[in-house]
Design a protein around this nucleic acid. Structure first.
Lengths: 232, 232
DNA sequence: AAAAATATAGGTCAATTGCCCTATATTGGG
DNA sequence: CCCAATATAGGGCAATTGACCTATATTTTT
């Protein structure tokens, strides 16, 4: 099974070899803390402890916690881009086969502790932190780029905008499984069956969806007639 | 449009009418802070300020912050159950019509600030907080109960376990849109088209899925052959 | 080997946070 | 109207946190 490399980091951070290695250790330790204990536990002192060094040493490499977190997130999100590059490079399969492979790959990745614990945290943070929101958005745009190349091969009858909406739906559907069938989640044992449902359902979606389906609710105001409580 | 009541709270908290009202004010203020500024900003002092009272007064009603948060979450999650009850009570429509209505209702709800900001936060917290995990799980179980009643009517050829897996897939697919097309999210303007895709795709899924589809990958170990980097 | 550059430890500080305590004000029933 | 129950304010305290500073140790260069 293909695994996401844990971390990608910018080169040339420390100047001595010891410093270079230390930066890696710090970021790895920070990621461990984030995944194991959550964002609230991600403090300079906790990172230092997980790394076996002192707080003063951590602040030597990162003057502010914000810098450290940014470096950590950009690094960890870049590591995910490798999955997409890997998939995109495959030329032996048909578009439909590749599509199913992508779906299964993403769903398998979701079951890892790293993905299950990292992404919900990023989703939460991105609601109030524009920088994180941008990082995450950029990564998902990269993820959908793979789908955007396969979908027109499977179904040529969609406009570019419609095709991109379908790619979004597919990607978002998959991400939604994280909370339910991710690492240590109640439905995790059934992920193989979920893969079966997703593969069939999402491939059929791409193959059969029409412009009429997509625009079925256009300009229609959706409301329920007998609300039990009046809107505020 | 049917809206979720903001909050449901346990009766009999304060003993004078002023105290009763105060508890509501505190929880409403806490929810405001949580939605507007995120979980990190949810402090006793911030809540007191948003409520126009002192910290001492807040601690009078809630001895610990944990108590307050628990009360807030159980209250706010209970308020979501009202949606499901509302849907379940509808008897005028066919199962398929109801199914599409449920999908659209949930997707519309996702576009509210409350849902977009609350749930990712809960997903993140539930990874490290068993109590929150249980609350959230309980709520989603209630949500799927509605689907579990409709799906056998639409497709009687599924075993109970398979049918529940399909309900999970439908529910998770919808939740996945939160991050992409929720309140203030990039794809929010296209939610109506996403509703079209989801309605078509998920209804077709329920109608057409077979046991063979679901168990297609059973006992097959999934792996990519030409991984660019070796697994650790 | 000396010197310069880099790395590390340990201490300090102000700000924040949850929680507690006490004095005062307000409410509502007798 | 008065008194007990309830509500509120304000202060304080120990713990935590990010950031900073200085002295010492280690590594690399010359």
């Amino acid at each position: 099974m293909f695994e996401v490399p844990r971390l990608k980091l910018r080169p040339g951070t420390g100047n001595y070899s010891k410093g270079q290695a230390r930066v890696v250790e710090i970021l790895e330790a920070a990621l461990d803390v984030l995944l194991d204990e959550g964002y609230q536990a991600l403090t300079m002192r906790r990172i230092a402890k997980a790394c076996g060094i002192t707080v003063g040493n951590v602040t030597y490499y990162y003057k502010s916690k914000d810098d450290l977190v940014r470096d950590l997130l950009t690094g960890v999100l870049e590591s995910y881009m490798d999955i997409f590059d890997h998939i995109a490079s495959d030329t032996t399969k048909t578009a439909e086969e590749k599509f199913v492979t992508v779906i299964r790959l993403l769903l398998e990745d979701i079951t890892s502790k790293k993905t299950t614990h990292l992404f919900p945290q990023l989703w939460a943070l991105s609601n109030h932190d524009p920088f994180i929101a941008e990082c995450v958005d950029e990564m998902y745009t990269g993820a959908r780029a793979v789908l955007n190349r396969m979908i027109p091969e499977i179904n040529p009858n969609l406009s570019e905008e419609e095709q991109k909406l379908v790619a979004l739906f597919v990607s978002a559907s998959i991400e939604g499984m994280t909370v339910f069938a991710g690492y240590n989640k109640p439905w995790r044992p059934h992920m193989q069956q979920i893969e079966g449902i997703a593969a069939k359902s999402l491939l059929d979606c791409v193959k059969n969806i029409t412009s009429e389906d997509i625009n079925r609710f256009r300009d229609k105001d959706f409301s329920l007639d007998d609300s039990p409580s009046a809107p505020k």
